[in-house]
Structures are given as structure tokens and as C-alpha cells.
């Protein structure tokens, strides 16, 4: 009987299905960001004026919050592999808490835009902004639930899958932040 052939996918860290999900999400957000910049070409002054209403500093702080949260999730995986359940749960709780901070700051931005009479259909900028950041925030919320679940399971495989999803959320934000908030 022949031994199964080695595949390049055997080197992939974590579950293949989690990577399929990560690639799918990156493709969706990537298309959204390209669409945003393409539509911006039709009205650069309008996009610049609309961008001025966003919480740029809050979004910068949120980037620090998410990359720190991702660091805690990465440390939780190391703790899981070392069999340190209490530590991994504390680290995942910290990561989830920072996810909550991210959503709180994001909600403040939405509330201020709403109070200023700016909504989804006020300008194409806000349509893209709310679609992209709202979809991302939904992923942050799902990630918080997932971190809680894998913290309860507390196995290295589960923590690796949960942390990978959380890092994908982080990765999307570091690409979204400069495109929507800075340039």
C-alpha cells in the first residue's frame, strides 16, 4: 500500500477549515476596501469631508486595542500548549475584554455620526464606512463569543482555532484603518 503523498497544506498551522474561513473573509473585506477607494475617485472632496466626521483618534486607539488583544490571544495559545489552563483562560478573558473596549469606542463613533444626522445613505463614504466597519464589528462580537467558547473548552486545538479567527479580525482592521480613516 502506498503512503499518502505529502501536501504543502500539511505545513499549515491550525485547521484547514479555519484558513478557508480566513481567506474568504479577507477576500470579502479586500473587495470592499478596493471598492471604497475606486468609488472615492468619483468624489475625492466629498470623501475627504465625510472622513473628517469620523473618530480618527478613537480608531487609532482601537488599533492599539486590537493588536494588544491579538497578542493576549497568541499568548493564550502558548499557555494552552503548556497545559496552563488558568493562564490561558485569563489571557483569553483579557483578549475578549479588549474586544469589548473596541466595540464601545466604535459605538461612540456611530452614536456621534447619528447625532450629527449622518447615516448610511448620507453619502457614499458613509455607506462604505458603515458596511465595512459594521461587518467588522460583527466579527469582533462573534470573536468575543468564540474566545469565550474556546476558553471553556481550553484545549490547544480549540484555542488555536479561536485565536486564528481573532487574528483575522485584527488583520482586517489594520488594513481597514488606514484606508477608511487616514488616507
Amino acid at each position: 500500500m502506498n503512503a499518502p503523498q505529502a501536501s504543502v497544506l500539511d505545513d499549515l498551522p491550525g485547521d484547514l477549515m479555519m484558513w478557508v474561513l480566513i481567506l474568504s473573509e479577507l477576500a470579502v473585506f479586500g473587495a470592499g476596501l478596493l471598492g471604497f477607494l475606486a468609488v472615492r475617485l468619483t468624489d475625492p472632496p466629498g470623501f475627504a469631508e465625510a472622513q473628517a466626521h469620523l473618530h480618527r483618534t478613537g480608531a487609532g486607539i482601537n488599533t492599539l486595542v486590537l493588536v494588544t488583544s491579538g497578542w493576549l490571544a497568541a499568548l493564550a495559545l502558548e499557555a494552552a500548549r503548556a497545559g496552563r489552563r488558568t493562564r490561558l483562560r485569563a489571557l483569553l478573558a483579557g483578549a475578549a475584554l479588549l474586544g469589548g473596549v473596541f466595540l464601545f469606542l466604535k459605538a461612540q463613533e456611530y452614536a456621534d455620526l447619528w447625532a450629527a444626522g449622518l447615516s448610511f445613505d448620507s453619502h457614499a463614504f458613509y455607506t462604505f464606512h458603515m458596511l465595512l466597519t459594521g461587518f467588522h464589528a460583527a466579527h469582533v462580537l462573534a470573536g468575543i463569543v468564540l474566545l469565550g467558547l474556546v476558553g471553556w473548552l481550553a484545549t490547544p486545538r480549540a484555542v488555536e482555532a479561536g485565536a486564528a479567527f481573532w487574528h483575522m479580525v485584527d488583520l482586517v482592521w489594520v488594513l481597514l484603518f488606514p484606508v477608511v480613516y487616514l488616507i
Binding site: V67, A164, M168, D170, L171
Partner: peptide, 8 residues
């Protein structure tokens, strides 16, 4: 993030 957090 890809290389260090996601261990690629």
C-alpha cells in the same frame, strides 16, 4: 500578523 500571530 500573518507570520507571527498566525504562525505562517
Amino acid at each position: 500578523i500573518l507570520n507571527r500571530y498566525l504562525h505562517l
